[in-house]
């Protein structure tokens, strides 16, 4: 732990990079997954196409996806985009399922009632379906966020930034306090992000906590 205080500036710098590299994929992935999840919740065809595809994506090791990405999209291996793209892909794969499950679990009678009151489909999705699906969606988002934060480190194995740099540098210089500092940083970041999402979820869905 003393490493952190002795190298405060460095620690702060990798924290910022780590945060950026994990937050951006979660945001993009989440937004992309909403229409796909919605589609999967409505159509059996979408499910039979999307779910197995998402499962296969998970089987590809993150390190492999990170080294393949630059070749596929034609950028240099040391570009941050090489972590952002794979993690976005994982996030989408994970969130499609959560969102589809969440939307399918919205009670049919509520939807019928909303239709009967004359909601148009898009408005209904925004004001009825999606809010009711939020608790399950946020649970999925928490898993995606925590695993992203832990996976960003893998990028360091090919020389990218974040706490992972502390791991590889610590390994090369036989400096375990440095590795440990990165580990603590990752876990703390994950716990904080998880707690934040939990809180946001509670604030957004006050109805989920009453009347139990």
């Amino acid at each position: 732990m003393t490493w952190i205080f002795d190298n405060w500036e460095r620690f702060w710098e990798v924290t910022a990079v780590h945060l950026r590299l994990s937050a951006v994929p979660v945001l993009i992935g989440f937004v992309l997954a909403i229409p796909l999840g919605w589609w999967a919740s409505r159509s059996q065809t979408a499910r039979t196409v999307l779910f197995p595809f998402a499962n296969i994506l998970f089987t590809i090791p993150s390190i492999a996806l990170i080294v393949i990405t630059p070749v596929v999209i034609g950028v240099k291996i040391l570009d941050e985009i090489n972590v952002i793209v794979p993690l976005t892909v994982y996030t989408v794969a994970l969130m499609i399922r959560s969102i589809a499950d969440a939307l399918s679990a919205v009670p049919g009678n509520v939807i019928a009632a909303a239709n009967a009151m004359g909601y148009r489909p898009f408005k209904r999705f925004l004001t009825v379906d999606f809010p009711l699906a939020l608790p399950v969606t946020i649970a999925g988002l928490r898993v995606a966020t925590v695993s992203n934060i832990s996976m960003v480190s893998v990028g360091a194995l090919v020389g990218l930034g974040g706490y992972g740099q502390l791991f590889t540098e610590g390994y090369q210089t036989d400096n375990s306090p440095k590795v440990f500092a990165g580990l603590v940083g990752t876990v703390v970041l994950a716990v904080l992000a998880d707690g934040l999402l939990l809180l946001v979820g509670r604030l957004l869905t006050p109805w989920a906590r009453v009347g139990r």
Binding site: S150, V179, L183, T186
Partner: peptide, 14 residues
């Protein structure tokens, strides 16, 4: 779940 596998691996190696 939040534990980065790479770090654990390196620490135990060290």
């Amino acid at each position: 779940r939040a534990l980065p596998t790479t770090a654990v691996l390196i620490l135990v190696v060290l």
